[in-house]
Amino acid sequence: MSKETRYCAGCGVPIQTEDPQRSGYVPPEALEREHLVCRRCHRIRHYNEVGKTERTADDFRTVLQELTTQEALVVHIVDIFDLEGSWIPELSRYIGDNPLLLVANKVDLLPQSVRPEKIERWLAQFVKGRKTDPVDIVLCSVKMNLNVERVVEKIEEYRNGRDVYIVGATNVGKSSFINRLLQQYGDGEGDEITTSYYPGTTLDAIRIPLDDNREIVDTPGIVNEDRLSERVSPDELRLIVPKTVIHPKVYQLNDGQTLFFGGLGRLDFKRGPRQPFVCYMAKDLYIHRTKTERADSLYAEHVGKMLSPPFEKGTLPPMWKQSFHVRGEKTDIVISGLGWVTCRGDAAELDVYAPKGITVSLRPALI
């Protein structure tokens, strides 16, 4: 048997047969197989099990360090539903002078009344505010196979004989996109990257050879720990990640009223005229309205029960309050990894709660 290092076809880690508790383990008899998949990937694919990894956010970023010395087209995939949470803040540090193609995935989740041109203009302003200048922006849905061919065309247009690095945060659909590319560039059965709801499924860079001796490199998902999708369990994650078109829920609130988003977030309308608050969140997430004067006691009694997820009390950091004053334009209040609430621009003083460490921010309304 050759001693050449072999890699898991699902997550990219080096294969090893010594320690079942470490990443990349396969039973020794499995080494005879042409397409090796580690035990962790096998269990994710066939039993929907989730195995924690010993990797950290710094480990994932280390894999991207090679970008600083490579000439490549960088394709940054973001989740249009969780744009702030899926954006890599220090991206420019990794890519240097390399061209950047921005791909916004999961566009199928947005209401069909929203024109793609409007979303593209909005995204252009979003990235401009982050001092990033992509060569192009493409909207797509990997799940629905919408505009994926256009992304491939743009990759061929801009790579100019260079390698292609696919980067993105965890759970943005990056590995699913790579699997679409494998249908075009792969070499047959067995070439499929492991995908799951659980963040961090791809553990090391996975390389797909191209006809001109270049490569498409699928890098591990960056772990942005300031979003809820990194903090909840896989079963809880299924309730907060939308699977179909988002149907906004509208609540007419008087000041002194509160909205709970399961037990993961809370919005208190402190002062302002009666007005609508439009919630863009997964349909399976329970939203509860109550009077603000009752909110603390209701949360203490019902978190983990009526107010869930979380499914158990005490599994997340304590709620942390941030105060905002909205006036003059339609504004989204974003809870990273959970969704957003749109205010129409009437004067409103708000307190917004999320587990400590989770980013809450304001932005011009997307819809």
Score class of each variant (00 low, 15 high):
42 H>A: 03
100 L>S: 05
149 E>C: 06
335 I>M: 09
269 F>K: 08
159 R>H: 06
66 E>P: 14
262 G>R: 09
119 I>C: 03
249 K>H: 08
331 T>R: 04
181 L>H: 08
150 R>G: 01
198 Y>V: 06
326 V>F: 02
367 I>H: 07
61 R>T: 05
66 E>K: 15
216 I>V: 11
57 A>S: 10
90 E>C: 12
175 S>H: 05
235 D>I: 08
350 L>F: 05
202 T>C: 03
46 H>F: 15
16 Q>G: 07
47 Y>T: 05
360 V>E: 00
255 D>M: 15
218 D>Y: 12
110 L>G: 04
307 L>C: 02
344 R>Q: 10
143 K>F: 08
124 A>T: 13
90 E>Y: 12
124 A>K: 15
170 T>W: 04
276 P>R: 11
5 T>A: 14
163 D>T: 13
10 G>S: 07
270 K>H: 11
306 M>T: 11
257 Q>T: 12
220 P>H: 05
199 P>R: 04
238 R>Q: 08
325 H>V: 10
293 E>V: 15
159 R>L: 01
297 S>D: 13
83 L>D: 01
283 K>W: 09
367 I>S: 00
245 V>M: 14
335 I>P: 07
240 I>S: 03
330 K>V: 02
230 E>N: 08
304 G>W: 06
119 I>N: 04
289 R>M: 10
337 G>W: 02
65 Q>R: 15
239 L>Y: 10
107 V>D: 03
338 L>C: 03
308 S>E: 07
219 T>E: 00
322 Q>C: 03
9 A>K: 14
151 V>M: 07
31 L>M: 15
102 L>Y: 05
52 K>H: 03
99 P>V: 07
245 V>P: 13
288 H>W: 13
67 L>K: 14
235 D>Q: 13
205 A>N: 12
38 C>G: 08
44 I>F: 10
193 I>S: 02
64 L>M: 14
327 R>S: 01
170 T>R: 08
89 P>E: 09
296 D>N: 14
88 I>Y: 04
174 K>F: 06
42 H>R: 15
158 Y>W: 12
251 Y>R: 11
162 R>Y: 05
130 R>A: 04
55 R>T: 07
77 I>D: 00
26 V>A: 04
110 L>E: 01
178 I>N: 00
196 S>Y: 07
321 K>H: 04
314 G>H: 08
325 H>K: 09
32 E>Q: 14
299 Y>I: 04
44 I>G: 00
320 W>F: 11
249 K>C: 02
357 G>L: 09
74 V>Y: 03
85 G>V: 10
101 L>F: 09
303 V>I: 10
110 L>I: 10
192 E>Q: 13
197 Y>D: 10
136 D>T: 06
338 L>Y: 05
14 P>G: 03
332 D>L: 06
62 T>D: 13
365 A>L: 03
174 K>Q: 04
137 I>P: 04
63 V>G: 02
261 F>G: 01
349 E>M: 04
76 H>I: 01
170 T>P: 11
288 H>G: 02
